[in-house]
Design a protein around this nucleic acid. Structure first.
Length: 935
RNA sequence: GGGCCUAUAGCUCAGUUGGUUAGAGCGCACGCCUGAUAAGCGUGAGGUCGAUAGUUCAAAUCUAUCUAGGCCCA
């Protein structure tokens, strides 16, 4: 029975648990951060070195999803890194509270009571609804370990914020950028109301499909026409009732068009649709002929046609929206009744003509059909054009997807209504915005192209919404002449009222109450006024956060250093913020804009309830802890779409454990270290062995690499670099080799102490480096690290690389040694398979090698057993290599011979040695261990 | 349909200006250890670089088209 020497070893000791139990531990740490006011203390930094990341406000509706998680964690990692790097980096979270989705929810709850509910009461309900979700989301964000001023966030429905919105809107009015114009919107003639996109449902509807001829009146020299019988363009439509509002014919500039001679006369139709059109018009192939002559749409632009029955000249225009899917490649354009028609109409200065009233009846303008309901008038109109001989073939019923009202389920119409716009051209808003886009840093770089293209092409900004839950368009109009009051003191009054009482005041008071005593219209002298009832587009709300928050909040300063949101915000917040800021400040509100992709499932598909592939952050947090979500956020390249799946989570859990155990090993092996003398400054380089210096050198490289990656927001590079360091450089190499020294040497031996100092420094640096990502675990480790230190890891400084410790020569040498070690491992593995050995310590290794590598190994001959973790290792000439020994793979000219180690196994250090048995009082020990115990 | 973007082993990532048999870690398989132990170590098997065509002496890398997917529009 051999003696148990385990107690004589210096085995790792630590209370730091191997099993993280994150779901519970995280709550304890959150409590610690909260009561310790750690975020507040982090703000105690030099404000001249500030880094302002301005939060984009999520919408205060629903629980957070993985997209929110990714966004907030990315921001948090930046804020924590910047702070640890010595910056003043406050994070003021925000919420977007106004808008249709919340109003919808409230409407739903109100049900039939909606009609009798006053606007102000409804707004109150909306406010309560938003408040509730701000609370819910706040808790969910905090649960992720995201630091920020959660007690004092910015909220777009706070009175002060609402006043800022009004102020910024007035600034636009003052600069003359706001104008009133017409724009087609979805309109329900049954409910007599405008509908937002979200209030429109698509359903099948049967409509008449007709082809209509528009005779060319003047070809403007573009083409020749049949003077006698006439030449006509053919259009296709399923909404005959919009024909009275036809203002133009749109062709695609790049499509080919041709002349068709048919029984219905000479026609112009897109080449690729001729056959289809003729077929539908009821002509067989021998009844018509297509001439060889073709034109592009661009060739045909500017030709004057006559409206089929109204005395109106209709021109051909070019538009990219024209398609070859169906129809004739020539699009009947009624700017008052279609979004695309409207946009293209703006370019050509077409009248936004809408001879349809709010009940869907034709106005007096349309002589023959005045008073008729548009859908009913369809047949009358078809009859009319048939009588005129401009109907090609007959009307046919087609079933197609058509927008319907979500409430009454009846088909809706597009109808132009009066709206408020911000002009993109006045004051060169578009031009200036484009210039600012060029000056801003976009990460990734393609973000610039994307938003540039969008701003270049976008129409004027429609600011008004016919809704209740929002900030009102605070304009007053004369009841007599309709002119708007543009008066400084009136605007001031309104702004002040909103500041103290909120935007509700607009709905509570009369127009006169905002005007000075005895105020009369500057245009017509009338004294009756009415308030504008529309509210502002919610994008305007969040778009002015640069003014309402970044400029107004003493904690921040403008312009912000960074905006960070999903790539959908190129169209949303990045753009509304840009226009709001350029319009009034003449500059972008941000210096840099970083975008991330979307969260998709394991196959790269988007998550949706119908696909059933939705993964919730709440569920993952409960099962694995928020830390795994943080690690996930860092692990992949977020500039692309981020995949998440059970396998990905499983890999992350593994990776987490590995990093955690690496730190646990470090903690366990420095438990008896006097940390006061273990600072890097007091580190005695001379006491270190080469492998210790190698580890330190690798650590410096890691610090440099990780710092660079954080600076470029490439967190996945941090993740990979740290992970590789833990596994390759530390766990399987340095630590594995070091165990003998740590465990079996005298506890206070110079050699062991030196390695402990190295481990201590690695631990501190490593923990700090992962803190922005693995915040919970880093804080937990921090508490177990012995010695004097800051109360929280987030109050400490990020590690700096010490160039004096970098030794590239040494690294190169050890890289070669490492390759040789791989060869030895292969040789050992073969012997293990043969059951010749089990543990490598049972082996004695002889290396047969020549050349430079032999010279190198010669220098390290004494260290080879330690490096290979075998009991003994020798070096011989290549020529002496025995038959059948292992031949190198990576290194060709190396042979590794494995034999049983000489002597017997020391029961303490487990090395095989000939000295075992020499000592009579402890015959199971080798001389080295005997001496250690003797001291 | 348009604009922007993506596509390398089961997973997450490397692959410098086109230049040898495309790399890493994890996972997997097999094994060792039982003194980091719901740990640790080793070895090994995995890829026609989304597809096709082209440029080139040479392409994962350049070009075009297509396919699949994402965001934003329509």
């Amino acid at each position: 029975m051999s003696k148990d020497y385990k107690d004589t070893l210096n085995l790792p000791q630590t209370g730091f648990p191997m099993k993280a139990n994150l779901a519970n531990k995280e709550k304890e740490l959150l409590e610690f951060w909260e009561t310790g006011a750690i975020y507040k203390k982090m703000q105690d930094r030099d404000r001249t070195k500030s880094f302002i990341l301005h939060d984009g406000p999520p919408y205060a509706n629903g629980h957070i999803h993985l997209g929110h998680t990714l966004n907030k964690v990315l921001k948090d990692m930046i804020v924590k890194y910047k702070t640890m790097k010595g910056h003043y980096a406050p994070y003021i979270p925000g919420w977007d509270c106004h808008g249709l989705p919340i109003e919808h929810q409230v409407d739903k709850k109100l049900g039939s009571k909606k009609a009798h509910t006053a606007v102000t009461d409804k707004r109150k309900l909306c406010r309560e609804y938003a408040e509730r979700f701000v609370e819910i989301q706040r808790d969910e964000f905090k649960r992720l370990g995201v630091f920020g001023d959660w007690d004092d966030p910015y909220i777009t429905m706070k009175y002060a914020y609402e006043a800022s919105i009004v102020r910024e809107f007035h600034a636009f009015v003052r600069k003359g950028l706001v104008y009133r114009g017409k724009k087609p919107v979805h309109w329900c003639p049954t409910c007599v109301t405008a509908l937002a996109e979200a209030e429109v449902e698509h359903a099948d509807k049967v409509s008449p499909s007709i082809y209509v001829k528009f005779r060319i009146k003047n070809p403007e020299g573009r083409i020749t026409v049949d003077e006698e019988k006439g030449t006509s363009f053919v259009i296709w439509t399923t909404t005959p009732w919009t024909l009275p509002a036809n203002m133009a014919l749109a062709v695609h500039p790049e499509f080919r068009y041709n002349r068709v001679k048919s029984p219905a006369g000479e026609l112009i139709i897109a080449r690729d649709l001729t056959k289809d059109c003729m077929e539908k018009a009821g002509y067989s192939e021998d009844e018509y002929s297509v001439s060889d002559e073709t034109w592009t749409g661009a060739d045909l632009e500017g030709i004057t046609c006559s409206h089929p029955w109204i005395d109106r000249e209709v021109k051909t225009i070019a538009g990219e929206h024209v398609t070859l899917e169906q129809g004739t490649g020539i699009v009947h354009t009624a700017p008052g009744h279609g979004e695309e028609d409207f946009v293209v109409g703006l370019r050509y200065g077409l009248d936004v003509y809408t001879p349809v009233n709010d009940r869907g009846l034709f106005t007096e303008d349309v002589e023959e059909f005045a008073g008729q309901y548009v859908f009913k008038a369809n047949n009358e109109i078809i009859k009319k054009i048939k009588g005129l001989g401009v109907l090609l073939g007959d009307a046919q019923d087609v079933s197609h997807s058509y927008p319907h009202c979500w409430r009454c389920k009846k088909p809706v119409i597009f109808r132009a209504t009066e709206q408020w716009f911000v002009s993109m051209e006045k004051n060169d808003l578009r031009k200036k915005a484009l210039e600012e886009i060029k000056k801003t840093e976009w990460i990734p770089g393609w973000g610039r192209e994307r938003i540039y293209g969008m701003v270049e092409k976008r129409p004027d900004w429609c600011l008004s919404r016919q809704r209740s839950w929002g900030v009102p368009i605070t304009l007053i109009r004369c009841g007599k002449c309709g002119e708007y009051v543009n008066n400084e003191s009136v605007m001031d009054t309104i702004e002040k009222e909103v500041q103290t009482s909120g935007a509700d005041v607009w709905f509570e008071k009369t127009a006169e109450q905002f005007l000075p005593e005895g105020y009369t219209c500057t245009h017509c002298d009338a004294d009756e006024f009415s308030k504008e009832t529309d509210i502002l587009d919610v994008w305007f709300d969040s778009g002015v956060s640069h003014a309402a928050v970044v400029e107004a909040d003493e904690r921040l300063s403008a312009p912000a250093d960074l905006y960070l949101e999903g790539s959908d915000q190129h169209r949303g917040w990045f753009q509304s913020s840009l226009l709001a800021s350029v319009g009034t400040r003449g500059r972008a509100p941000y210096r840099a804009v970083l975008t991330h992709g979307f969260v998709v499932d394991g196959k790269g598909k988007k998550m949706s309830k119908s696909l059933g592939n939705v993964i919730s952050p709440q569920d993952l947090t409960n099962r694995h802890g928020a830390e795994i979500l943080r690690l996930w956020s860092s692990s992949a390249d977020y500039r692309e779409d981020m995949r998440i799946s059970n396998e990905i989570i499983a890999r992350l859990v593994d990776a987490y454990r590995k990093i955690r155990n690496t730190c646990r090993f470090l903690l366990g092996n420095i438990h008896d270290l006097d940390t006061l003398s273990s600072d890097m400054s007091t580190l005695k380089i001379d006491d270190l062995q080469e492998i210790d210096r190698l580890a330190l050198s690798q650590l410096q490289n890691l610090i440099k690499k990780v710092t660079l990656s954080y600076e470029t927001y490439a967190f996945y590079e941090v993740y990979h670099a740290v992970y590789k360091f833990c596994i390759i450089d530390m766990s399987s190499f340095y630590f594995d080799i070091l165990k003998d020294r740590l465990y079996t040497f005298r506890a206070d031996s110079k050699e062991r102490r030196a390695s402990q100092q190295v481990l201590y420094n690695i631990l501190i640096s490593l923990t700090k480096m992962v803190a922005p990502i693995l915040s919970f675990t880093a804080e937990e480790i921090w508490r177990y690290i012995p010695g004097e230190k800051e109360k929280s890891i987030f109050l400490s400084d990020f590690p700096e690389a010490n160039e004096a410790l970098v030794d590239s020569e040494l690294e190169k040498t050890w890289e070669t040694l490492s390759i040789i070690r791989n060869e030895v491992n292969r040789a050992l593995e073969l012997k293990r398979k043969e059951k010749f050995i089990g543990n490598a310590l049972e082996a004695k290794v002889t290396i047969y090698i020549g050349g430079e590598k032999r010279e190198l190994l010669k220098k390290y001959e004494k260290k080879l057993p330690e490096l290979f973790i075998v009991s003994s290792a020798g070096l011989r000439d290549r020529a002496e290599a025995p038959e059948g020994a292992y031949q190198g793979m990576e290194i060709e000219d190396i042979v590794v011979h494995v034999e049983k180690a000489d002597g017997s196994k020391c029961q303490r250090c487990w090395n095989w040695d000939v000295s075992v048995g020499d000592q009579e009082d402890d015959p199971e020990l080798c001389n080295r261990c005997y001496r250690v115990l003797a001291d």
